[in-house]
Write a protein that binds this DNA or RNA. Structure first.
Length: 198
DNA sequence: CCCTGATTCGC
DNA sequence: GCGAATCAGG
């Protein structure tokens, strides 16, 4: 697979959007995240500037490794990466979708034994965190219970007794059960609310 | 462990 | 130019 114009453009777009290299690679298909990163560098847009400090890679002083890497490794044939290219179309979602009124109130069909995390009761949670959550929920993958894996955000959204109930499903940050945004509202140290000074 | 981007260097 | 291997960090 080569870098056609379209693929490069998509790469640029996604990179500009702040998507991670691995996400871009998955989206494009047929390439690894390394390929994406390599291309990004070659295109000279390695630096994601714009607004807000990039939290990811800090501007680390890279003096000079000096020592050459022991690159005597035998390099076997590169993996062809057999990907059938599953390409789900991404619908453009710009405008805010009107919240559909929960007309139907089904009986509580809550799967028993589901550890529901403390829902943000709009209590004393950082407005910033809340904003981030609602922002993120638009992009949520809306997974069902069975689709959850160890690496998908298990934050439930909506009313379990309603049709529109799903799990966030975004990639979790680390070993945590939620994505970054949801971790933000889920694991708020008591100290931050009691003694919140800012 | 999972992830992220950055860099090197054989191809 | 490409990208796997590696590095470096969270």
């Amino acid at each position: 697979m080569s870098w056609s114009d379209e693929r490069v453009e998509k790469l640029k777009k996604m990179w500009a959007e702040g998507q991670s290299a691995s996400q871009i690679a998955k989206e494009l298909g047929g390439v690894t995240r390394n390929a994406v990163i390599g291309k990004v560098h070659r295109l000279g847009l390695s630096n994601r500037n714009g607004s807000g400090g990039g939290t990811t890679t800090e501007a680390a002083p890279k003096p000079k490794p000096a020592a050459a890497k022991p690159r005597g490794k035998a390099k076997p044939a590169a993996k062809p990466a057999p990907k059938p290219e599953p390409k789900p179309e991404l619908a453009e979602e710009e405008t805010v979708e009107a919240a559909s009124p929960p007309a139907s109130r089904a009986k509580a069909i809550i799967p028993a034994g589901q550890p529901l995390p403390p829902q943000p009761s709009a209590n004393e949670i950082d407005p910033e965190a809340l904003a981030k959550v609602s922002e993120v929920e638009k992009k949520a993958k809306k997974l069902t219970l069975m689709e959850l894996t160890e690496r998908t955000c298990k934050w439930p959204v909506g009313d379990p007794a309603t049709e529109d109930f799903w799990f966030c499903g975004l990639p979790v940050q680390s070993g945590k059960p939620y994505c970054e945004a949801h971790v933000g509202v889920a694991f708020q140290p008591m100290s931050s609310r009691r003694d919140r000074k800012r």
